[in-house]
Design a protein around this nucleic acid. Structure first.
Lengths: 341, 341
DNA sequence: ATGAAAGCGCTAACAC
DNA sequence: GTGTTAGCGCTTTCAT
């Protein structure tokens, strides 16, 4: 039988209330008593039953997800995963609220963040680019005692409690490895399409991609980044231009979270099948393009895992308990036609 | 505020005990009362608090894992994952017991299974080949009311409650896709090394592999399976023979759970780098061989995920609650040098 | 500074 | 058949 607070109380010769005070590091206990209780705790090997504690405490976890209002399908899949998680969240006493801000509008984002405080939320998960004002808003929330996790794109200068997403440099390296290996030993040139060089994840992916292309596949020329700012018209135009200008093109690397316009243009030009195409994020578009053979490989991250992980981590931070690191490591998934779930 | 049993009792005009009886489908309640309680339940939108129920019930989950005593590193990684899970299992009132049987000894396995019953275990996870006696032993356990999940290799004729592992046909298809794509458009021949054609997962992988090689890469010849029965000496010998007999060999597909001897022989013959090599399961050996470039790709399954999933599913079956399918889907992971955790 | 006692949402004896 | 009551392991007033 596992020892309970009662066993500790008896062993230490104090009351339940005192044990509880020590357990929760609350003031009003003599140092000597604290010692005695702690001695009993590790002598009996006590581990507190978090579920019982939460029951007594009537704990609810009011968690807020802050997501961009963006056209990319990836964000939609993330929202779907969140909605799915919301369905079973009542069972874990979790209330999920989602706040949206227009992508690329840091002011709106900051305004949104300003509405949040420890009185109305117990934890925040945020998918947003890091700008100075955003950083300040997050620091304020943190100092208000609200745990924060960064989703998908890290916010390294905000003291966020955790980053839930893939290592994007390694993601770019993986994309390059696949590009090089699928490409074959002949020379060629690869177009790189990014959504924005402001987005940290995009920059990191491009960096990793360049590293491996240079190291391992020097015979392939990597063209300068084309920025599309997540605008499908821009994408259509710049991709068309390159396609016309470079009949020798052999590959395309789509760095950002959206690939719809790219796939459409490549198909219209009848170039998709001859090119080696590597994209990021599994969405209805990339899924279908993998199936048809238009895209060769997708480097992805499991949005369901990201959401569940964010929830677990926030709850753990709120409860002040540890996490299982292995369970929270978001893997860099490689998806090809044959392992398409 | 979420409604509680008290609210239901009040609304239905009955006592707590009666609500509890209805909730747990226990006998001794008039049909009419049942109706009234159920009406109140869905009128108030009641969802039972499973943690509170488990607290009151003092529920412990005594779970048994039955694993082969096998030389392959993969089994060792599975055991490690289990040990890791065991460390935090006290928090979820779960007691994990591991039973081992000598690989390839169905009698010993059956003897082990016979020691199990509903009095000494609440759920069983088993990684073993399906033989008639094994099937009977499992059916007996099932009819004793013990939930069963099959790990890694399915036991489809045993009415196991769930299979926790990858779709091995798709796993073989994935391996073939990588083999073909990495191989390049020249002809060639691929050696296939299986551990045993008795093992269902091996057979399925080989099947999937052949499908895709025939469909998509007909220019590559796929050689007949070489069985090694997980014996490293046999592996060394047969691989050496083929290597000598087929200087035109261009690829190797390692189907089984172990690849140590294979990697060693290929290195000794200085053939690893020129060949396209695809193996299964991420272990210290395949990890190192990916890093060195000796193995090109590994098709794997996350053992940590497998173990956590098995635990969640068994607990859910015991509690009679549902699972989140997306969370329990074991992904077919593709691991290359650059996304090596 | 410490303790007694009630209660969180649910289950399970034991009455009636 | 149905209700009363005492917990499960922990937290939290409110006394002392």
């Amino acid at each position: 039988m596992r020892p309970t607070v009662n066993d500790i109380a008896r062993a230490a010769g104090v009351s339940l209330a005192t044990v509880d005070r020590v357990l929760n590091a609350r003031p009003g206990v003599t140092e000597k008593t604290v010692q005695r209780v702690n001695a009993a705790i590790d002598q009996l090997g006590y581990v507190r039953d978090v579920t019982a504690a939460n029951l007594a405490r009537q704990r609810r976890y009011r968690l807020t997800f802050v997501l961009p209002e963006a056209p990319e399908l990836f964000v939609a899949t993330l929202r779907d995963a969140l909605a799915e998680a919301g369905r079973s969240s009542a069972a874990d006493r979790t209330e999920i609220r989602t706040l949206s801000f227009p992508a690329g509008n840091p002011h709106a984002l900051v305004r949104t963040l300003r509405t949040l405080n420890s009185a109305n939320t117990d934890g925040v998960a945020i998918f947003a680019p890091e700008t100075p004002h955003v950083r300040d808003a997050i620091l304020r929330l943190k100092s208000d005692g609200v745990p924060i996790v960064a989703l998908v794109s890290d916010l390294p200068n905000t003291e966020r409690d955790h980053f839930v997403g893939i290592d994007n440099i390694a993601g770019g390296r993986t994309a390059a490895f696949l590009m090089g290996k699928f490409h074959g030993k002949r020379g060629g040139s690869v177009m790189v399409l990014v959504s924005s060089m402001q987005a940290r994840d995009n920059v990191e992916r491009r960096l990793g991609f360049d590293q491996v292309m240079a190291e391992s596949f020097p015979e392939i020329e990597v063209l300068p980044s084309l920025e599309n700012h997540d605008d499908e018209d821009i994408t259509a135009r710049v991709v068309s231009e390159v396609l016309d200008a470079r009949p020798d093109l052999t590959g395309v690397y789509s760095v950002g979270h959206g690939s719809r316009a790219l796939v459409e243009v490549l198909r219209a030009h009848h170039r998709a099948r001859q090119l080696t195409i590597v994209a990021h994020e599994l969405t209805s578009v990339t899924r279908e393009a993998l199936r048809s053979g238009d895209i060769d490989a997708v480097v992805s991250q499991d949005v369901g895992h990201i959401v569940r992980s964010a929830l677990r981590i926030l709850r753990a931070k709120i409860d002040g308990v540890g996490i299982v690191p292995g369970q929270e490591r978001i893997r860099i998934e490689i998806v090809v036609r044959e392992n398409l779930s």
